[in-house]
Nucleic acid binder design. Structure first.
Lengths: 155, 155
DNA sequence: TTTGCGAGTTTCATTACAAAACTTATATGG
DNA sequence: CCATATAAGTTTTGTAATGAAACTCGCAAA
């Protein structure tokens, strides 16, 4: 991954950080992935200040990461559900968590994520080539669209 | 991924966010992956305030994400290099970038990451089962160490 | 020996975050 | 029907983080 000065600005990372770059964002997301749906649940689970939580949830809704709906049986209650866009953050969150496990807290973390089908732990998240080789930063570089051999995939 | 209230607190995500949860962290990291090494390079590339940049770089060094060294040929110059721990954030960063591409900016992002070996774009980052199936949040759940069938991997 | 660069600090203004109290709409029990 | 409780927020007020611009300090080059 050599030095590429050409339009780094157009990278989509800043756009992603617009939604996810604020404090608490990932922790609220994790709680949502763990099945929490209600304001008070998030608040008690995370210990976050109520105004900030309200703020973040509203932001998530604005950005299409969560959907807000009131429950018919009890109209005081509001449910927050992850949208497909929100659910699509799962790999990012798992990657960040795994990194923390490996480099911050040290190996064994509880609970661990397992495949529901066979109960075995998930793989470590990695950058893979089109044919499945694990890539490090030295094995890849930036390219402009014209340089790429036809079949497009993720970039 | 059902509701698991049992010790979410021990999840390593908060630890990871301790290093990476601050504003600019991922953008500085991206710049580093792109071969930037010097204070002024980061500053000009990102337009970040100098005091904040100094702060973040110092934090990265504290947390072992970057190494700080002065250049022998010109002892005014300082290089910041990613450590293995810092480089290990690549999958997380790529995952976040890909999410931004897909859901924020819309498909075509420039430049794109390609495999240096064949010039083809990298795969989309995903959560995979031990045998390589792509998993969604419905295909996995939390387990405690005792529940796991022997061969340990990442969790 | 002065001019300039690289890598930061300092100062001060602005903005984000946080704790606790308050509000509003709805439910529930007597 | 009235009192009390609950869910989901707002308001208020204080603290901490961020940002722009100017300043410092060590080295290097002319």
């Amino acid at each position: 991954m050599g030095k590429v000065r050409e339009n780094l600005a157009e990278c989509s990372l800043p756009a992603a950080l617009e939604s996810m770059g604020e404090r608490w964002a990932f922790l609220i997301l994790r709680a949502a992935f763990n099945g929490l749906h209600h304001f008070e649940e998030f608040q008690q689970e995370l210990g976050i200040a109520r105004n900030i939580l309200a703020n973040r949830l509203a932001r998530f809704v604005e950005h299409g990461i969560m959907e807000r709906a009131s429950v018919p049986e009890d109209r005081r209650k509001i449910v927050y559900n992850l949208t497909p866009k929100g659910s699509a953050l799962l790999p990012t969150m798992v990657a960040l968590r795994q990194w923390g496990e490996r480099w911050e807290t040290g190996e064994p973390a509880f609970p661990i994520l397992v495949d529901v089908r066979d109960g075995r732990p998930i793989q470590e998240i990695a950058v893979l080539s089109h044919d499945g080789r694990k890539l490090t930063k030295h094995d890849m570089h930036w390219a402009l669209p014209g340089d790429v051999p036809a079949e497009a995939d993720a970039g």
